[in-house]
Simulated scan of single mutants.
Amino acid sequence: MRKETDLPKVKMIAHVLLDMPIAETSFSPAIVSHPFTSTGVTAAQNEDGNITVVDLLNNKEDYAKWKEMVGKQIDSAKNACQVFFLLNKPYYLTFLKFSAPVLSQEDLGQLLAHAWILEECPNQDRNVSKRELLALFHSVPPELLMDEEEYAVYQSLEDPVTVYRGVTSYNAKNIKALSWTLDRDTAEWFAHRFGEEGTVYEAQISKEHILAFFNGRKESEVVVDPKYLEQIMESPKPEMEMQMT
């Protein structure tokens, strides 16, 4: 891992992603898929400094104007973090997958934490495999992934650790994922969001296989290496446990 970030190479990777074609969806032009935009109708700055609405899907001049604007923003970035936050959130981890070799450990740790917390369903990013995600987390010392409070909780965990995961019909087959929680109520919320009747699972895992603890969304989330999860079972509801005792 590099001691210093190679910013020119980070910008080069960003430009490669910028050159990717915009993928339309069934909700286009309102919603599209691209590393630097989630909509086909957006805003761009003219040479006179005024902001205008541009059509990225049907107007080649507008598309060229938008690409030039984003390209200038990439080129003017003072650090890797500024480049990172230009990206569309679903592509945060994709960007890190390609830029990790040219990022310092400090930058990679900071940006990986941001990506994990801000990207919706990072466990199911189709551009980054579970093996690649684990490699990213293993490449950074835990203390560089967490803030002081999170790292204090991480260090205080007793061994082994009981973790919970709530799933719905959407992700019911993805039980052995990286994302679990220390809080059963949080898992219960995930199991029933969107009005679904999901399932809460619990498991045991050795502390050494917990890669990070994040609480930025108040979810007491732990990132684990799922191959070391043991005793995975449906978690009985607390009231059932009280009746049994």
Rank of each mutant, 00 (worst) to 15 (best):
M1S: 15
R2V: 10
K11S: 01
K11R: 14
K11V: 04
I13C: 10
I13Q: 10
V16W: 14
A30D: 14
T37W: 05
A43H: 07
A44F: 00
T52L: 09
D55W: 13
L57P: 00
N58E: 08
N59G: 06
K60N: 12
D62G: 03
M69Y: 01
S76A: 15
V83T: 02
F85C: 04
L87D: 00
N88M: 00
N88I: 00
Y91P: 07
Y91M: 13
Y92F: 15
L96W: 00
L96T: 02
Q105N: 05
H114I: 01
A115M: 05
A115L: 00
I117E: 11
N127V: 00
R131W: 02
L134Q: 10
L136K: 02
V140Y: 04
P141T: 07
D147Q: 02
Y154A: 00
Q155W: 04
Q155C: 09
L157N: 08
E158G: 15
R165W: 04
S169M: 10
Y170N: 14
N174K: 09
A177L: 06
A191L: 09
H192R: 14
R193A: 04
G195M: 08
E196V: 14
T199C: 12
V200F: 06
E202M: 11
A203N: 05
S206P: 00
K207H: 14
F214H: 06
R217D: 12
E221P: 07
V222S: 08
P226F: 03
L229Y: 02
E230Y: 06
Q231E: 13
M233V: 14
E234F: 07
P238G: 10
E239W: 15
T245E: 12
